[in-house]
């Protein structure tokens, strides 16, 4: 009992230190979160609740002509982002770590796109992807005698191309994290492996990859969560088109909230996004935990 009382006293100071953060969290995160869930169950004038309607807003959201396209596109964004965007930073990170000369230059080089404002990046890539004779990429293709491509206006290419532009911008920053991780690997391991005659492939296969595996798992789930909330890239580059080929679930939410001022349905969609992400994260944790065991 005495020990417990001592323990509580000791803890109290810690809790007191945490109180300001907890208040801020409660005010800026938890309370809006709860209000958002409440809003999704009501009709509203502006943000003011009018009448409890249960799950009607959820039904309306799901019945929206754009919902299925937005939902499936969002998973398509995740698929392409994992295919294109997940491996690139690992490869870049390993390659730069293995580089002997101009390492700093390469590090700055890959990180450079990340310092550009997002909107500027999106605009630049839009100019590159312009179809017809005036697009930068089409001009380059023209020099090689290749017919102009449709780029973003080809519904099959829209999402992968948007992911390419996102990867170009953010892969460098993630690669830096991998590089930091790789640099913390005991150098003796590499030295011993090199003495034993291991080449770059073997060093990577048996030392680097197992070492970054834990970090890669964390970054994977963060990437899924981040890409699930993709909004500004499709909004600026294609406005969700052509014919909903690139609309994301966040875009649909944005349209309900700020084009139609229908905040309850927007709130319902955001709650659904939250639930899906919780489910995906839970599933992922369970799968990786099982593997770890």
């Amino acid at each position: 009992m005495k020990t417990k009382s001592k323990f509580r006293k000791k803890d109290l100071a810690g809790w007191l230190v945490m109180v300001p953060s907890l208040i801020l969290f409660a005010f800026y995160i938890w309370q809006p979160l709860i209000e958002n869930i409440r809003l999704s169950l009501y009709t509203a004038k502006r943000y003011e609740l009018v009448e409890f309607v249960g799950l009607d807003n959820y039904v309306r959201a799901v019945n929206s002509p754009d919902f299925m396209a937005a939902f499936s596109n969002t998973f398509e964004y995740i698929f392409w982002s994992l295919l294109i965007g997940f491996l690139v930073p690992i490869i870049v990170g390993i390659l730069i770590s293995e580089t002997v000369h101009f390492k700093g230059l390469f590090r700055v080089g890959v990180y450079f796109p990340n310092i550009m404002p997002s909107l500027a990046t999106v605009w630049i890539w839009s100019f590159f992807f312009t179809p017809g004779d005036t697009g930068v990429l089409n001009i380059l293709l023209g020099k090689l005698g290749i017919e102009p491509l449709m780029w973003l206006t080809d519904p099959d290419m829209t999402i992968p191309l948007i992911i390419v532009s996102m990867t170009w911008k953010s892969a460098g920053a993630t690669a830096l994290i991998y590089m930091a991780n790789i640099s913390s690997i005991n150098a003796d391991l590499y030295e011993a492996a090199t003495i034993d005659g291991a080449g770059i492939w073997q060093r990577t296969r048996y030392i680097t990859l197992p070492s970054v595996f834990g970090l890669a798992k964390t970054l994977l789930i963060l990437q899924v969560i981040s890409v699930f909330q993709i909004l500004q890239e499709p909004m600026v580059m294609t406005n969700g088109g052509p014919n909903n080929a690139s609309i994301s679930i966040m875009m649909l939410m944005y349209r309900y909230a700020f084009r139609d001022f229908n905040f309850p349905v927007a709130a319902a969609i955001s709650v659904m996004i939250c639930l899906v992400l919780v489910l995906l994260s839970g599933l992922y944790m369970k799968l990786t935990a099982a593997k770890d065991e």
Binding site: T130, P131, G132
Partner: peptide, 10 residues
């Protein structure tokens, strides 16, 4: 007719 600007969807 092909008389529109390069990318009407933009």
């Amino acid at each position: 007719y092909d008389v529109l600007t390069a990318d009407p969807t933009n």
